[in-house]
Design a binder for these strands. Sequence first.
DNA 1: GGTGCCATGTAACGAGTTACATGATTGG
DNA 2: CCAATCATGTAACTCGTTACATGGCACC
Lengths: 176, 176
Amino acid sequence: MALAHAILAFLSEHPCSGYDLAKQFGGTVGNFWKATHQQIYRELAKLETEGWISAEVIQQANRPDKKLYSVTEVGRQQLIQWIGEPAEVAAIKEDLLVKVYAGHLVEPQVMIQELQRHRQLHLEKLSAYQEIEQQYFQNPQDLPAIHKFSYLTLLRGIHYEADYVAWCDEALELLR
Amino acid sequence: MALAHAILAFLSEHPCSGYDLAKQFGGTVGNFWKATHQQIYRELAKLETEGWISAEVIQQANRPDKKLYSVTEVGRQQLIQWIGEPAEVAAIKEDLLVKVYAGHLVEPQVMIQELQRHRQLHLEKLSAYQEIEQQYFQNPQDLPAIHKFSYLTLLRGIHYEADYVAWCDEALELLR
DNA sequence: GGTGCCATGTAACGAGTTACATGATTGG
DNA sequence: CCAATCATGTAACTCGTTACATGGCACC
């Protein structure tokens, strides 16, 4: 059910097309909820038939038409109700940890290199998040409420990536 | 594909039945890979027809028969090959973050209470992990390789939960 | 006598992935 | 001329979830 609500949450702030959603999901909500464009179009169609969003066809010069979606009042109420329900703790599903768990089956160098590679990838994500923090969220206390909440999701990402790097370091130390 | 390999990884150390898998997944691999018993039985059937695992029917007194699965040499090779392939960075999918992202739509108290609740849940998981650490992994450096890798997955859990609690604290501070 | 554990499964559905398909415009 | 971007979708498949089904034994 959460994809539908992630879409509602994003659309309620930025009405846009399915194409835009598929891309801009990458920047904000996309940090904690991924979806391919096929999934998004399917979900948008469903949300529209249910009346939670409505579409306006925009004709563009030199470009294909697009459908601009926005959240209806019904959709807004659904979103608010959903937010009020308690959320489950997210389960972790991570290939890398399955591989680490069975890491004794391969040459030590294989796991060490893979951990170094992931350390680097998480470090890069961390830098990207920190740059956003520097640019837009210098004084979190002074932000309007709506941006405080955006900041909190970014802060979660910063925490997560920094902690992941720290774990990689400890893991690599133990394996040497 | 990873459920199959998570099962292989677990079976290669502890040959057991589908029923046991469904439960014991909870203790070790289950911390980073969840599956219902239906999924497990389906996957086991598939793995058996592919010849990656084999079953031996065990007749038990006063209990239903069970099928004891173990990994074949083919399965072992498949697992080793899979571990050698680079793993994707896991995508985060978390309902709570979607709710936080749109948190300005509800009363401040709603989000604060939900964050407090999650803080508590993660704290409990952290304690549980730390107890396992105390009991079985006092001196990680001295462990045999196979247990070092198990420890690393546990350490990942400890990191994750501790960091989550820290984020909840910062979030709650900002919202007050 | 009811609840819960052991043990295995089927069926239906919803969510997510991969591949295929179209067609115009922009920029190198 | 080729690749990339904009923009929308269908089809087929796998993975994950929920509900239903069976049946004996142990324990209170």
